[in-house]
Amino acid sequence: MRSISDGALVKQQRLAAFGSGTVIGTLGGLIGLGGAEFRLPVLIGTFRFAALEAVILNKAMSLIVVASALPFRTSTVPFSSIAQHWDVIANLLAGSLLGAWLGADWATRLKSKTLYRIMAILLVAIALALLFGHGANTQGEPLFSGPIQVFSGAGAGFGIGVVASLLGVAGGELLIPTLVFLFGADIKLAGSLALAVSLPTMLAGFARYRRDESFAVLGENRSFVLFMALGSLAGAFLGGQLLGVVTSTVLLPLLAGILLISAAKIWRHR
């Protein structure tokens, strides 16, 4: 009876991982995020992973969503449009790669309680970015130009890289407002440019996490990772197809509310 019960529990966990991965992947593909902002509270609250383990699992899932969401969005934003803005991508990466490496280093040194509190504060900040940073829906003038824009882009990239590693997120929720206001990018183009910046940024953070023993959580939970990854891929595809169908005026306030609730739960987490 014990083996049957254990088998049923494993099956239930796999289904839950696939289902949550699908929902979160859809949100990520739709907005241009890795979906990790919503996945992190699920990993901690529902699946009971410790803070640093949840961050590493979160980053692995986000990598899958980001890598797949970019080509899934090409029907709306072709690769040629992204390539035309290679200088913007390079500008942000100049800061985000270093920030991702340092952020991962800090995360492995923090106590769990401190990391939970930082996570909660950053989730609130991301909720505000979603509400106010996605408000522009047309291409406008860049906030700065010339050397000031370059230095501002690298500085913003550094801060976003740190946040991405601390939470295990792709950073799109911060990259998109930066691209819209600092570089004057159209909101849909900004979503795809954010994905292009997020992928190498997350790889830099992952490279640092591999030096820490907590990275073993991926090997210890291979089945869980596989099913959530499959759900994330399915969701990323669905989100890419829904791009332009679901309006931001409906979606973004709902997502921001979810993040605020999640932040409160993580703050109180033990």
Rank of each mutant, 00 (worst) to 15 (best):
R2P: 02
I4L: 15
I4P: 05
I4G: 12
S5N: 14
S5D: 14
Q13E: 14
A17C: 02
F18I: 11
F18R: 08
S20F: 02
T22K: 10
T22G: 13
V23N: 12
I24H: 09
I24K: 00
I24Y: 03
T26N: 13
L27W: 13
G28A: 01
L33I: 13
R48I: 12
F49M: 13
E53P: 10
V55P: 01
S62I: 08
L63T: 15
I64N: 07
V65N: 02
V65F: 09
V65K: 00
A69Y: 03
L70F: 09
R73L: 13
T74W: 15
V77T: 13
A83I: 15
A83T: 12
H85T: 04
S96A: 03
L102P: 06
W106E: 06
T108N: 11
R109H: 10
K111E: 14
T114D: 10
T114F: 04
T114L: 12
R117G: 01
M119W: 00
M119P: 00
A120V: 00
I121S: 11
L122V: 07
F132Y: 05
G133I: 03
H134L: 15
A136K: 14
T138Q: 11
T138F: 13
Q139G: 10
G140N: 11
F144C: 01
G146T: 04
G146I: 09
P147K: 01
P147M: 04
F151D: 00
G159H: 12
G159Y: 10
G159D: 07
G161N: 12
V163C: 04
V163I: 09
A164E: 01
G168R: 01
A170W: 12
E173T: 08
L174R: 00
T178C: 10
F181G: 04
L182K: 09
I187P: 08
K188N: 14
S192N: 08
S198W: 12
P200E: 11
M202A: 13
L203M: 12
F206R: 14
R208P: 12
Y209W: 13
Y209S: 04
R210P: 06
D212S: 10
E213W: 15
S214N: 10
V217Y: 01
R222W: 11
S223V: 07
A229R: 02
S232A: 15
G235N: 04
G239A: 08
G239I: 04
Q241P: 05
L242M: 14
L242E: 06
V246W: 00
S248A: 05
T249R: 13
L251Q: 02
L254S: 08
L259I: 05
L259M: 02
I261M: 07
I266D: 05
I266M: 05
R268Y: 04
H269C: 00
